[in-house]
């Protein structure tokens, strides 16, 4: 009978304390009853093993005695939990972006990447942990959201919104690129420039260096909006307007960069788009100054390209926005989802 005692003990360790002894006594009595019915006289070890195997592991047996709704966060609270967690994470991202922006603009000290990452990861765990804890307590107190009780009127259901789905993958790529640029601007500003060859030193671009806070601010705004878009999953009037404004701000920043670069180049006496290449000596290596000019011109071309791309994108967005407004006001027909 030693095996039965061990089994009952193992089950008991995982039972609710309140009626543990009672369940254990009943389980033991039942096991012995079953054994008696199956064997004549003293049961063999094989018979006991067979019976216990049939009953199932102690974990399984113990679990069947716990109340059915044994959840950290149950199915009734889960949708609300997901929504709250989403909001909390959104607020978290926005707060972190704002803090990062403040640090970039006001802090003159170099930023320690490890320290910063550690802080963000720590705060992220705290945020998720607090939400989980609050909901676990609500579950424990058996608080149920008002999803079953009460009268409801189907006529109060909100109108179906036309969904202009966002391209999540594209947004993730956008955020990643923005984060990489921010990281470079924050942590390796001494690497932004032009290299003549792999062994030469880096020739810095003075215009970018002086515009870093503005560039980062523009990128942070962009990330913030992209995060909201990923969370919402589709375009809404608010996000469209915000995205258009953010793009206009990016255009402004690019214009500042371009004008700065132009002014700097004019100061050095190089006005034409490819004047530095034209000034290259036929043979022999160009001077460091000339390489710096070439680098500035390369950056200028990059700024122009970026400006054109973002302007086209912004015009398209404004067009879509106006079209959406017109569609909304002119008819109630259901449009197929549009990839925006």
């Amino acid at each position: 009978m030693n095996l039965i005692d061990r089994y009952v003990y193992a089950v008991g360790r995982q039972l609710p304390r309140k009626n543990r002894a009672d369940i254990q006594a009943e389980l033991k009595s039942t096991l012995i009853d079953t054994l008696e019915a199956r064997s004549e006289g003293e049961p063999s070890e094989e018979q006991i093993v067979a019976l216990l195997t049939e009953f199932g592991t102690p974990e399984k047996v113990a679990a069947s005695y716990w109340p059915e709704s044994q959840y950290l966060i149950g199915p009734k609270l889960y949708p609300l939990f997901r929504m709250s967690l989403g909001i909390a994470l959104l607020v978290f991202v926005i707060v972190q972006l704002v803090l990062l922006g403040v640090v970039v603009i006001f802090n003159q000290q170099p930023i320690q990447i490890l320290e910063l990452t550690g802080d963000i990861v720590g705060s992220l765990f705290t945020t998720v942990g607090v939400v989980v804890l609050v909901f676990a307590v609500l579950q424990r107190l058996d608080v149920k959201p008002n999803i079953e009780q009460g009268k409801w009127d189907p006529r109060e259901l909100p109108e179906v919104e036309e969904k202009y789905e966002v391209n999540r993958r594209g947004l993730v790529v956008e955020i990643t690129i923005a984060l990489i640029i921010i990281a470079i601007l924050l942590f390796w500003p001494d690497k932004i420039g032009f290299r003549l060859n792999p062994w030469s030193g880096i020739i810095l671009n003075p215009v970018i260096i002086s515009t870093i806070p503005l560039i980062i601010l523009s990128l942070l705004i962009g990330i913030g909006i992209d995060v909201v878009l990923i969370w919402r999953g589709h375009w809404e009037t608010g996000t469209r307007v915000a995205k258009i404004c953010a793009n206009l701000f990016s255009i402004y920043v690019l214009s500042v960069l371009l004008t700065g670069q132009n002014a700097w180049l004019a100061e050095q006496g190089y006005v034409g788009l490819f004047s530095a290449i034209e000034a290259l000596p036929q043979n022999g290596t160009p001077s460091i100054e000339l390489v710096q000019i070439m680098s500035a011109q390369a950056f200028r071309i990059a700024f122009i390209v970026a400006l054109i791309v973002i302007s086209i994108e912004t015009f398209k967005m404004i067009y879509r926005f106006i079209k959406q407004l017109i569609d909304k006001s002119s008819s109630t027909r259901i449009l197929p989802p549009e990839k925006a």
Binding site: E26, L27, S64
Partner: peptide, 9 residues
């Protein structure tokens, strides 16, 4: 058996 006893309770 594992189904019946918890049900009785």
């Amino acid at each position: 058996q594992g189904t019946l006893y918890p049900l009785l309770r």
